[in-house]
């Protein structure tokens, strides 16, 4: 099984006092969105939105999140991406 590090995520949400959280999962983990959303809502009281679209990598982030009042976004399956301009 893949470790979704739920405890860490819950802690970050509480620290941030986020009221609305967007969760973004790669295709292989999308079926676990229900489990993650239920846990976050139950443990933090934050409202959860599930990103419907693609999640190909840390380079593939949704835009316009401020307009729907997202306070915190959590993406699973990837880590920090160092965008290089020279190497393209």
């Amino acid at each position: 099984m893949f470790d979704l590090e739920i405890a860490t995520v819950l802690q970050r949400i509480k620290e941030k006092q986020a009221k609305r959280v967007l969760i973004q999962l790669p295709d292989g983990l999308k079926p676990r969105a229900q489990e993650v959303a239920d846990l976050i809502e139950k443990e933090t009281g934050a409202e959860v939105m599930i990103w419907f679209g693609s999640c190909f990598g840390a380079c593939d982030l949704p835009i316009g999140l401020n307009s729907v009042g997202i306070d915190l976004m959590v993406q699973w399956g990837h880590n920090i991406y160092h965008k290089t301009v020279k190497e393209w």
Binding site: M1, F2, D3, L4, E5, T8, V9, R12, K16, L22, L29, A58, L61, L65, N66, I70, D71, L72, M73, V74, Q75, W76, G77, H78, N79, I80
Partner: peptide
């Protein structure tokens, strides 16, 4: 928006 990345380690 602040972002958190979770590796989802095997």
């Amino acid at each position: 928006v602040e972002m958190v990345f979770v590796d989802a380690t095997w």
